[in-house]
Computed example of a mutant assay.
Amino acid sequence: MAVLRGDKDLADGHSTKLTDEARELVNPFQTGDDTTDVQFTVDDKKLHFNKGVLCVCSPVFISMFTGEFREKNAREIALPGKKYSDIVTFFRHMHPVFLADTPVTDNSLLPLLELADEYDVKHVCQKCERYINAQLKLAEEGRQHLSMDGTLLLLQACDRDDLRPQRERLVNVIAKKKTRELTQSQKFLSFPADFLADVFRLRCEHLEVCSGHLTTAVRRITTDVSGHDWGLTLNLPQKCARAVFCILII
């Protein structure tokens, strides 16, 4: 397994100009060396890896290479139904040399989660979860606009029991978007019905809270001005403005 120039530079402490997406395409597993002892075939292309690394990361590979399976003594293993670029990225996230320099991206999130589930690679699942949390935090703090494409991606990623809290956070983020942005998006209506139901339920709850605050504010203003000459109530505009401000920040 040859270390490519971009990764060696990073290992030596020199910077590179590779983007996250470009790094996903860098394939250090094209050729074998003294450290590789198994070869995978994906989309009629070869990938060389080390059984020991695979077994450390995955109990599925432990069973494959130590149990009574045909792959136990095989030098070449076919992975039908898998996408070559997805497996390359997955292997990069498993290999200790490339793990730290291989970020999760929008492009790799869903394939990584699927493969990590299939092969029970917990540290890859955790890395994807950290990426999802980071994206949600940026959206919650208003530091990054979450598009409908981004929403759909995160929703698909959160369609797992262990990511239910992240799904609830996503519902909260979308429920606060302006109605025009939601209705103008063609993808919004393609979201799962249960997600839309949760979004609209939360929006209704938010409107009820706003309505309650508005009613309280109006009652206070009415009480303040009752029995007074309207022309002499100089602080009425300030009170109205304060009431509206309280409603808007809810």
Rank of each mutant, 00 (worst) to 15 (best):
residue 3 V to C: 10
residue 15 S to F: 09
residue 16 T to M: 00
residue 16 T to V: 03
residue 18 L to N: 06
residue 18 L to K: 09
residue 22 A to F: 00
residue 24 E to K: 00
residue 26 V to T: 06
residue 28 P to R: 02
residue 28 P to G: 11
residue 29 F to H: 04
residue 35 T to K: 08
residue 39 Q to A: 09
residue 40 F to N: 05
residue 44 D to W: 05
residue 47 L to M: 05
residue 47 L to P: 01
residue 50 N to Y: 09
residue 50 N to V: 09
residue 51 K to Q: 11
residue 51 K to V: 09
residue 51 K to M: 07
residue 52 G to M: 12
residue 52 G to S: 13
residue 53 V to I: 15
residue 56 V to F: 14
residue 58 S to F: 02
residue 64 M to S: 07
residue 65 F to R: 10
residue 65 F to M: 08
residue 70 R to V: 10
residue 73 N to L: 09
residue 76 E to F: 01
residue 78 A to H: 14
residue 82 K to Q: 15
residue 84 Y to L: 07
residue 84 Y to K: 06
residue 86 D to H: 14
residue 88 V to E: 01
residue 97 V to A: 12
residue 97 V to S: 10
residue 98 F to C: 05
residue 108 S to V: 01
residue 111 P to Y: 07
residue 111 P to R: 06
residue 113 L to C: 03
residue 114 E to G: 06
residue 114 E to Q: 14
residue 118 E to A: 08
residue 118 E to H: 08
residue 119 Y to S: 02
residue 120 D to I: 15
residue 124 V to P: 02
residue 126 Q to K: 11
residue 126 Q to D: 15
residue 130 R to T: 10
residue 133 N to I: 10
residue 135 Q to E: 14
residue 140 E to M: 10
residue 144 Q to T: 05
residue 145 H to C: 06
residue 146 L to V: 06
residue 147 S to L: 07
residue 150 G to I: 08
residue 152 L to Y: 00
residue 155 L to M: 12
residue 157 A to L: 06
residue 157 A to F: 00
residue 160 R to D: 04
residue 162 D to R: 01
residue 163 L to G: 01
residue 166 Q to D: 12
residue 170 L to E: 00
residue 172 N to V: 02
residue 173 V to S: 06
residue 176 K to Q: 15
residue 181 E to R: 13
residue 182 L to F: 08
residue 191 F to K: 00
residue 192 P to F: 09
residue 196 L to V: 12
residue 199 V to S: 04
residue 202 L to W: 01
residue 204 C to D: 11
residue 205 E to Q: 14
residue 205 E to W: 07
residue 207 L to C: 07
residue 209 V to M: 14
residue 218 V to L: 15
residue 219 R to Q: 15
residue 221 I to W: 01
residue 223 T to E: 13
residue 225 V to P: 01
residue 225 V to C: 13
residue 233 T to I: 13
residue 241 A to C: 12
residue 243 A to I: 04
residue 246 C to P: 00
